[in-house]
Design a protein around this nucleic acid. Structure first.
Length: 431
RNA sequence: GGAGACGUCGCAUAGUCAGGUCUAGUGCGCGACCCUGCUAAGGUCGUGAAGGCGCAAGCCUUCCGUGGGUUCAAAUCCCACCGUCUCCGCCA
């Protein structure tokens, strides 16, 4: 939720942000108008209510005829109070409905435009030239082919058991995921994050609080019988962890690393990434989540990005970092950096991490506040970032593949695989 | 799944039966100050959140698990829901 005071004091800033996002800037003026109306309604109600309370006290003291007369007056007043309260409530609801449509104010420097208008901040590492290494006739194997050779991925039986976009990680595939996610948890722990294993079913207010029931609501699984939602990331549960709490952040941020299954309906992506495990309905993820004072959020954002890069370095993947354009930000994010690894089989970049600075937007909706040194309360800032997902296996297999279908294990992962340095096919290539 | 008890201002508790003086008392904790020759004791005052009005001082409204209802008036009465605990049953 946007800061109403900010919107009142500097509407131009919010209008500019709306424009940058490609959203309607006139919503700001609608909010200003509805806000004025609401405040008038509230004042009306409160004045009458005060009158009613005062009268109520007189009723309590009075006796006989005097009491009967006061009672009659009080009855009339009660009707009016009820009506004014309804007016004030309605005005508040009307205001909320519009306010909730305004996205977070984007940070200075965020590129304007949509999905394709990102700015590449840097490249790290160089994609291998497999043709140079293994000869011009070498056919690059994609992650599914490799995964099947290694006995690591079984999408056929995934479909048999659960349908399209489901899979089994088998044998070394399962071990590889555990290794990756354990490595991610260890990195987070070393960086001062508290490891968390989180619920994957959450209440509607938590899901709404994180902003996932807005434009992308049809991406979210809902269990109708229980009125619960399946999370698409542990960010949801972690954001809700301190909902309606007042935190003491004077000793530094609260940093959590959540491990959870993640569920996504992939409703709008028919025919996209249908092969393998790039885009699936269920996967595992280690997610960083920070509660921090508002003015420190951008510095924390850089820290999360640095940790993501450290993990990508650990698994030795070539990647680039992009600054997502305003129109491609979630409503809660003021800025978002993605790290994309090279995908040899498709000669393109594949998103492996995403870190968002939600400033106080998400926290305001969830009621997460901090107490300042002067004893005041104010909304905290929240940030999140990816430290490892099932999808990373795609990039690891493809980038570290060798001519015979084996896959070199990046050194950073070897301790998590009992020292294993090469994943070898369990059946001959081509079989 | 069944039965019962309970949910009050950071913590503990009073208030709920008999609705109005609850503007929610008290203790602890916390903060400021005072006193005191010393890691003691005591005293005074203060101490929740959200919102509205106001230049300000300040005033006002809402919140006693949540949401409805009854009433001129609800922490208090009624209903539903949520949560915690105890017991019983069932089961990975």
């Amino acid at each position: 939720m946007i800061d109403l005071r900010l919107l009142r004091d500097t509407p131009d800033v919010v209008r500019a942000s709306q424009t940058l996002r490609g959203d309607d800037p006139s919503l700001v003026d609608t909010v200003l108008e509805l806000d004025t109306r609401r405040r008038a309604a509230v004042t009306d109600f409160e004045r009458l209510r005060a009158e009613q309370k005062a009268l109520g006290k007189q009723v309590a003291q009075a006796r006989g005829d005097e009491k009967a007369e006061l009672l009659a007056r009080a009855k009339g007043l009660a009707e009016q109070v009820k009506a004014r309260q309804a007016d004030a409530d309605a005005a508040g609801a009307e205001l909320d409905a519009v306010v909730s449509r305004i996205g977070n104010v984007v940070h200075d420097g965020v590129p304007a435009g949509g999905e394709d208008d990102y700015v590449v901040l840097k490249h790290v590492g160089t994609p291998r030239d497999l043709a140079a290494e293994y000869g011009p006739d070498f056919a690059v194997r994609d992650h599914l082919e490799l995964g099947e050779l290694l006995g690591a991925i079984d999408t056929e039986r995934g479909a048999k058991v659960s349908g399209a976009r489901f899979y089994f990680l088998t044998g070394i595939g399962a071990r590889l995921e555990l290794a990756l996610l354990n490595a991610a948890m260890d990195r987070a722990l070393a960086a001062g994050f508290t490891p968390m294993i989180t619920p994957t079913l959450v209440k509607p207010e938590v899901m709404a609080g994180t902003g996932y029931l807005g434009a992308h609501a049809d991406e979210v699984y809902r269990l109708e019988a229980d009125d619960l939602y399946l999370v698409g990331t542990s960010e949801v549960a972690l954001a809700g962890y301190h909902a309606d709490e007042i935190l003491d952040l004077s000793d530094g941020p609260r940093r959590y690393a959540g491990w959870s299954a993640c569920y996504r309906r992939e409703a709008g992506s028919y025919g996209k990434d249908t092969r393998g495990i790039i885009r699936v309905h269920q996967f595992h993820k280690v997610e960083m989540f920070t509660f921090v004072s508002a003015e420190e959020s951008q510095a924390e954002h850089q820290r999360l990005l640095a940790l993501e890069e450290e993990m990508l370095g650990l698994v030795e993947l070539p990647y680039r970092v992009i600054d997502t354009a305003a129109g491609d930000l979630g409503s809660s994010a003021a800025r978002k950096f993605d790290c994309e690894a090279w995908l040899p089989s498709q000669a393109r970049w594949l998103e492996l991490t995403s870190t968002s600075d939600c400033t106080t937007y998400q926290a305001r909706r969830l009621g997460v506040r901090e107490r300042t040194a002067t004893g005041e309360t104010r909304p905290a800032a929240t940030l999140n970032g990816t430290l490892g997902t099932t999808r990373w296996i795609v990039a690891i297999l493809e980038n570290h593949q060798q001519a015979d279908g084996s896959v070199r294990v990046p050194e950073g992962l070897r301790p998590y695989l009992g020292g294993l340095d090469v994943l070898r096919p369990t059946r001959p290539a081509g079989a």
